[in-house]
Design a protein around this nucleic acid. Structure first.
Lengths: 148, 148
DNA sequence: ATACTCCCTACTAATTCTATAGAGAAACAG
DNA sequence: CTGTTTCTCTATAGAATTAGTAGGGAGTAT
């Protein structure tokens, strides 16, 4: 289940992606329009910035903008930053692999095999859908569909 | 992420599915072989029983057995019993649907659209893989593959 | 009758998630 | 240079969920 943090993050990024002219938006704006606690949202945006998804500026007329095109920001990355690995179980994760304690014979573990498939299926969607794709127009799929 | 409860549940069910002659196994056995806290495991098995996955008997030589063939017990059901809906977000769930507060226009919510696809992909695996399938032989897929 | 094993309710402990507080540092306006 | 604005950072508090414990009750077999 997605945490609120992730949900706030996704909404904020989608909101910034909709800002056509790449103008800066302030945390308080986003918080207000999203009905999210401002201070909480600050932490979230800061973390997204640290991971290279946002660019920010301080002082009067400061705020946040996407650090790269919306078509290059994928759901998978956002979720991993906020909530950690996609896989339902650490031993089935590529990005956050951790062996299960007391699992002799990982290679034959039926649970792991199934969860691995789940991970792959999730990745297939989340790592290939950008926030631009999600917004429908102007994204990767859109441009591809129009031969651009 | 799967909770420990779910992991214990899955392991216990797989263990019972491997018991060829449908002999009863006691909680303490399962707990020991799985290195799970016995009392905790009791609660888990009890819940699985209440949902019709297990049959139990008390007293000397009592224990648990699967209440139906392993080929009819699916990962999806087990996970839903223990952890709740598969969907990453309640508004994208079929079995546990709940509207998001402050989401005007659910039909157009980009997050929901994506998470719906994720849910479907997860269900496609988890609701079609039985514990017999996971164990490899004697399951649905196996029998089908051998024309039985 | 007794020993065994599941059944049930209540509670405690640990962890994670959500949110708040407040001071600090860059940018800008005047 | 001073004051205002807005992001930056660290620490902490509160709430919710998860994990685990305790202890007696009830059915079953010998």
């Amino acid at each position: 289940m997605l945490s609120k943090k992730t949900k706030y993050a996704l909404r904020a990024l989608l909101m910034l992606a909709e800002q056509e002219d790449a103008e800066m938006i302030q945390v308080s704006d986003i918080a207000q329009r999203q009905k999210a606690p401002k201070k909480f949202l600050e932490l979230i945006l800061l973390e997204l910035k640290k991971h290279g998804l946002l660019y920010s500026q301080r002082g009067k007329n400061g705020g946040y903008v996407l650090a790269k095109p919306a078509s290059e920001i994928y759901f998978g990355q956002i979720i991993r930053i906020m909530d950690g690995p996609l896989a339902p179980i650490p031993c089935a994760s590529l990005t956050g692999y951790r062996r299960c304690v007391d699992c002799e014979n990982e290679a034959k573990c039926p649970i792991r095999r199934v969860m691995r498939k789940v991970r792959d299926a999730m990745s297939e969607i989340l790592d290939k859908t950008s926030i631009a794709d999600a917004l429908g127009s102007s994204g990767r799929k859109f441009r591809r569909a129009h031969g651009l």
